[in-house]
């Protein structure tokens, strides 16, 4: 009976996953007629915290941050270390890298309902952090698949056994669909040549942006957008010893279609940096029917100044690598 059930779950997942096949082909007419938005993601995330160190995090080591580190002998030692030694000591668990590969397909239907399937592909054995115990967690208890559909969220392990079955109220996405339809249809009719006119893009930004933003072009053609981040200091969870207003600095490509780097500052202190790379793979394009409307990054690398569980300022370093990162729209 159990094996029948496992096969049923597998079959159900196969059927659901068929429409979410991320091995994209030029013909994408496989989308069912009632699907209006389909989101595909296949990503590997690597995440860890690092102590601030000269030579590696120099842009974060401003005068104020350095003063904080100098007040703590341990942090000062970590910062001053010339080069990583052969042997080190891990003091908190978030220093140990966590690798997580996930695959998701989320579909929104014309009636405003939504379903989502997520596969968690990294077995526990591939992460050292789950082995650092005398009695390691059983793979059977690991959530390997979740399906959210018809107001229910179900989690399965890799053998297809149900681990959890919870009510998850359905979200009415009709307003979301209506809003997206306006922009997608507008984008689909957009004159591509206009996107390559940097000056027109800058002019458009200045016309529409109500905040005290600054926009200018770099010698290499890239565009810089500098904006205050309103007055919400809490929004980025900054270290208490660092003061000043938040501001954002975004570097875009000359066509203003891709974010290349995004820095957030508090006062003169860099508190977050994101770097983006692109490779123009079709799996990374957002599509309306079969037409490309914009491109998603292949990788995002983030450095964030944050506080670890010991209360020390550290850098949270995460890297995301996308095999697929795509939203398909099917508006009529």
């Amino acid at each position: 009976m159990k094996s029948v059930y496992v096969h049923l779950v597998s079959a159900c997942f196969f059927l659901l996953n068929t429409a979410c096949n991320n091995d994209l082909q030029p013909d994408i007419s496989t989308g069912q007629p009632d699907v209006v938005v389909e989101m595909l993601t296949h990503v590997t995330l690597i995440d860890q915290t690092e102590y601030l160190q000269e030579g590696i995090h120099d842009d974060f080591l401003t005068r104020e941050v350095t003063a904080i580190l100098n007040n703590n002998t341990f942090l000062k030692h970590k910062m001053k270390r010339d080069a990583p030694s052969g042997t080190d000591t891990v003091f908190t668990y978030d220093e140990i890298p966590l690798i997580k590969e996930t695959k998701n397909c989320t579909r929104i239907f014309t009636d405003g309902s939504m379903e989502s399937i997520t596969e968690f592909l990294t077995p526990l054995s591939e992460n050292l952090i789950f082995q650092l115990t005398e009695t390691p967690v059983s793979e059977k208890s690991r959530i390997a698949l979740t399906i959210q559909k018809n107001g229910v969220l179900t989690a399965y392990n890799a053998a297809g056994e149900t681990l959890m079955h919870e009510v998850f109220p359905e979200q009415d996405m009709r307003e979301f669909i209506d809003t997206m339809k306006i922009y997608v249809m507008k984008t689909d009719r957009y004159n591509p040549e206009m996107q390559y006119n940097t000056k027109a893009g800058i002019k458009s930004f200045k016309q529409h942006c109500t905040t005290r933003s600054n926009i200018y072009e770099l010698p290499n053609g890239n565009v810089i957008v500098e904006s205050p981040v309103k007055n919400d200091k809490e929004i980025l969870g900054i270290y208490p010893g660092i003061i000043g207003n938040l501001k954002s600095r975004i570097e875009l490509n000359p066509e203003m279609t891709k974010t290349l780097q995004h820095d957030v500052f508090q006062g003169d202190n860099l508190i977050q940096r994101k770097k983006y790379t692109y490779d123009s793979s079709k799996n990374l394009m957002n599509l309306h029917h079969n037409r490309v409307i914009c491109e998603n990054p292949q990788s995002v690398e983030t450095f964030t100044l944050t506080i670890n569980t010991k209360g020390y300022p550290v850098i949270r370093h995460s890297k995301e690598f996308y095999k697929a990162n795509q939203t398909r729209y099917y508006f009529k």
Binding site: C209, T211, S227, N286, C294
Partner: peptide, 9 residues
């Protein structure tokens, strides 16, 4: 990402 083409902020 879609409206960002028209509204850079």
């Amino acid at each position: 990402a879609v409206p960002a083409i028209f509204m850079p902020w």
